[in-house]
Design a protein around this nucleic acid. Sequence first.
RNA 1: GCCGAAGUGGCGGAAUUGGUAGACGCGCACGACUCAAAAUCGUGUAUCGCAAGGUGUGUGGGUUCGAUUCCCACCUUCGGUACCA
Length: 978
Amino acid sequence: MEYKFTDIEGKWKKIWEENAVYKVTEDASKPKYYVLDMFPYPSGAGLHVGHPLGYVASDIYARYKRLKGFNVLHPMGWDAFGLPAEQYAIETGTHPALTTDVAIKRYRQQMDKIGFSFDWSREVRTCEPDYYKWTQWIFLKLYGSWYNTETNKAEPIETLIAKFSANSDWNTKTEGEKQRELMNHRLAFQSYSEVNWCAALGTVLANDEIKDGKSERGGHPIERRKMRQWFLRITEYSDRLLDGLDKLDWSDAMKEMQRNWIGRSEGALIKFEVQSSKIKVEQPLEVFTTSPDTIFGATFMVIAAEHELVEALTTPEQKAEVEKYIAYVKSRTDVERQQEKKVTGVFTGSYAVNSFNNENIPVYIAEYVLGGYGTGAIMAVPADDERDRKFAEKFGLKVVEVIDKSMYPGATIEDKLGKMINSDFVNGMEVKDAIKAVIAEVEKRGIGEKKVNYKQRDAGYSRQRYWGEPFPIQYKVVGEIDPPFEGGETDDIPVPLSADKLPLILPEVSSYKPSGDGRAPLANSEEWVKNGYETDTMPGYAASSWYFLRYMDPKNKNEFAAKDKIEYWQNVDIYFGGAEHAVGHLLYSRFWNMFLYDLGLVPFEEPFKKLVNQGMIQGRSSFVYRVAARVTQSKLDNIESDEYESPAIFVTREIYDRFKENALTPNDIASIKAKEEEANALLNGKGIDGSFKLTEPLSIIMLNEYAHNFDDERLVVDLFKVNDVKKSRCGNSNSLFVANENGDCLTTREVEKMSKSKYNVVNPDDVIEKYGADCFRMFEMFLGPIEQSKPWDDKGISGVSNFLRKFWRLFYDDKGWKVSDAEPSGAEYKVLHKTIKKIAEDIERLNFNTSVSAFMIATNELGGLNSSKKKILEPLLICLAPFAPFITEELWSALGNKGSIHTAAYPKVEEKYLTESEFDYPVSINGKVRAQVKLSLDLTAQEVEKQVLELEKIKQYTNGAAPKKFIFVKGKIINVVV
RNA sequence: GCCGAAGUGGCGGAAUUGGUAGACGCGCACGACUCAAAAUCGUGUAUCGCAAGGUGUGUGGGUUCGAUUCCCACCUUCGGUACCA
C-alpha cells in the first residue's frame, strides 16, 4: 500500500479539529507547561518557508511535553497593528483592518496545513478592541504610577502625592504646576525628543524608512525635529532588568546584548568652566566620563550638535561654519552619525578650563557625540580613546599620554589597566585607584560627583501613525493658570480617561495620510479632535509587551486575565523567537511584566524563563548589475534621480566587477556589444534620441529567481514589479540582459533575508503540496541547527521524503500490512531503545536536526534487519509523532489503537538493551590514529597498556621500548607518546 | 562605528564535557532490477598520491599527549543599533 500524504493529512486534520484534540484547560492534576512562539505580524505576502521554522520547533517541543504528561499551553495569535498595512492604506485607501483580516485568514490557512497543535480557541488579535482595551488599561496604570526608589518598585501616583502633600509648598501650587511636577515622575510621561521629520511627506519616519539621509519613498530630505512625545520610564527598571538576566535560561549572547543595551557604567559628572573671548558664559559645561582618571589628558572638549550651549559657545567668527555643520548633522540619523568613518567636526571658537591643570582647552562640536547619551558633552582624551585620538589627529590637537600600559602587555586601550603618568597627584597610581582619587578630588572641589550612567534611554511611546492603539488621553486646556510645558507651545494638559470608558475605539478617518501639520492621521477625524483626544497612537511594541498573559484568559471581559488562571499557568517556560528581538520586544515585555508584578497583578517578575532563538531562513536573490544605458543629455545631467527611459544593459556581478576594474574579457565585451546593437535597433525603431554611455553608478535590480528566460512574458512583468517596488532607477521594460546560449538571463545569486520585496520568497504551500506537511516539518528541522540562519534549498528535501516512504514500508509493502506480533530480537530492541533515548535527549537539547538523522538511521537499521514488529514499531511511532503528526496518527490507528497518538505516553528507555561490554578503541601514536583494538570495558589502565603495547602495529612505532607517556581514556581513546 | 553571532567536502550539516573530523541527507559515479524509463535496492564518494604516506575544520600564531572545540590577533558574512516587525 502506498503512502498517500494528501489523503492522510486531510483526514486527520478534520478529525483533530472535530475532537478539539489540542484544546487545553487549567487542570490542577497535571503539571503545566507553557510553550510560546513570538506571534507573527500578518503581512500581505503570506507565510514564507522561513516563518514556520520556529513554529515547527515549538510544536515538536509542545507535543513532546504532552507525551511526557504535561498540560501544555501552546497558543498563537496576531501582532496585528503595524506600518505595512498602514502604508498600503495610504496607497490604496483600503482600511488596514480589512487588509489585516485578509492577511490573518491567509496565514491561518497556511499554518493549518502544517499541522500545528495550537489551541486556536485562545487566539488573540492585538488590533481588536477586546484586546487593546487592556493595552490601554495597562498604559493608564503606567501613567498612574511612579517609581519609588526607596521601596524599589512602582507604586500608584497617589503615594507620591501623599509625600508631596506633607510639604506645604505643594498645596500652594496650581493644578497645572502640580500636574507638571507629577509628569516628571509618572512611568508613562510626556517629554520632548528629536524625531526624523520629513517635511515633504509631512510625517515622521522610522530610521528604517531612511536611506542615505533621504526618505526611502521619494528621496526627500529629512531633518531632526523636536516633538512632544509620550515615553515610558524604563530606565527606572535598568538595574532590575540587568540583575534579572542572571536568573534566566537564555543564551549568553542574548543576555550580553541586553546588558550592553542597558549599558550601565560607573563614572563621574564633572563640570568645566567655560571661557569665551566674546561671550561670557555663566553656565559650566557638564560632562560624563567613565575614565575620570584621565582628566590630565583631556586636551579638548566635544559637545553634541543638539547641546543647549551650542549657541552660547559659538563665537561670531565661527558662527557661519557652526551653522553649516549643525545643518549637516541634523540631516543625519544617530546610526549614520556613529557609523561615519570620516572624522567631522567644527570648532565653536570657545575654550573651557581644565581646572586640574588650568589649561584652556578648545570646545568642538562633532557628530560622534550624541545628545541623548550622558550629558551630550565629553572631555576628550585622545591618549585613551580611539575616536578622540582620530579627532585630535584630524584637527591637529594636542595629545598627552596619561596611562603607561607597558607592564600590561597585550592590554588594549579599552582595558582599564596601567599606571598613571603626566597626571600630577595621581602619578604612579594604578588606573582603578586613580579613578577613585580623581572622583574624591572632584567632589572635594565641588565641581562634580560620582555617577552611574545608563546608555539605555526612556522608551519613546508615541507614533504619528493611524494603525495603532489610541491613547486613552484627552487634552484639557488650562490656559492662563497653567504655564506651558517646558519648551512647548501648548498649554494643555493630558487627562486620562477613566477605566470604565475603555476601550477608546480607533476612529474612522477621511485619510490615512498624516494631517500635514505634523500631527498624526487621527487629526483627520473632526470628532476626535473636537473631543481633545491624543492624536498619536501607541507603538508596535505596546501590544506585544503583554500578549503572553492574555492567552491565559483571552475572552475575559473584566480583567486582562483572571488571577487564578495566571496563577495556574505562571510564566512562559520556553519561548521561541528570532534573535532580532533581543533588545526590543524582549526588553520591553520584561519591563511591562516587572511593572505588573510591582502592582501585584502577576505573581512572577520575569515573563520568559527559557528562550530559544531560531535562525532566519534566507532566500536566494538573483541580481543583475547595470553597465550601460542610453540616456538623453538632460538625464545624464541629473543621473541621481533618473529613471532611464531607454534600454540599459545588465550583467552579472563578475562581469560588472571586471567592468569597473577595466578588465573586461573579450567574451564580456562581445556579449555587451551584442546587446548594444540590440539596444540601438530598439531605439531607432522608436526614434528616441540619445547617446549610449557606459554608466558609472552601481545599480542593482533584482529578478524573480524563477524568471530565467528574458524573452518570457513573465520576466517582463516581474521587472515592472521590481521597478515599482524598488523605485528602481536603472531598468525598464526595454532592459537587456546578458544571457547564456539557452537564452537564460545570467544573474548573480546572493543569500539574504527572505522577503517579498526581494523576489526570493518560497511559499510553504507549494512544498506541502508536493511532499506533504510531515515532510515539510521534518525537512525544516533537518536543514540544520534551529539557532542557525541558513539559506532555503529544497534540493535536500527528497532525502526526508524518501525517509518517510521507507518508514511507511516498515508497515506496508506491495502486498499490504506486514506488521507482526512476534517477539523482537535483542538487536531490534537495541535499535529501538537507542533511538528513544537519542530522540528524547535531542528534543530536550533542541537538536532537532540530529533527531531527524536518528530516525533515518533507525529506519535504515530496521530495514536491514527486515524487522516489522509491533513491539518495536509502536513505541518508535510515538517518538516520531511530535515531528510527523499525520503519518504517525495514521499508522497508530492502523495498529489498532483507539485514541490519538498525540495523547499517548512517551516510551521509557530500557538501559539493559544498551549496555556494552567492549569498545573498539582507536590507538594513536603521538595523536595520529594508527590502529584499532577491541578491548573489554572492565580492563584496568595497566591491563590496557600491556595489551596495547603488545600489538604488532604499535610495536612498529615503539620498537619495543617503553613509551614516553601512555594516555588511556576509558571508552574513548588510547594515545601512545613515543 | 558599536553590540551579538557564524565560518567544516561539490552542497545542507555531524562531532553533546578537549579524545577516531566529515554521522545523516543531497548531489555525483558505477552496478542490480527493467524491452526501456521512473521508482526501488546495492557499492563508492574530503583532498594529494600507484602505494606507503602526507595534507585538511575562514587566516596567522599559541596552550596541550591530543584542538572544529580553549587563548590571542585578523578576515568575511549575517542580525541589532532605539518609529520595520
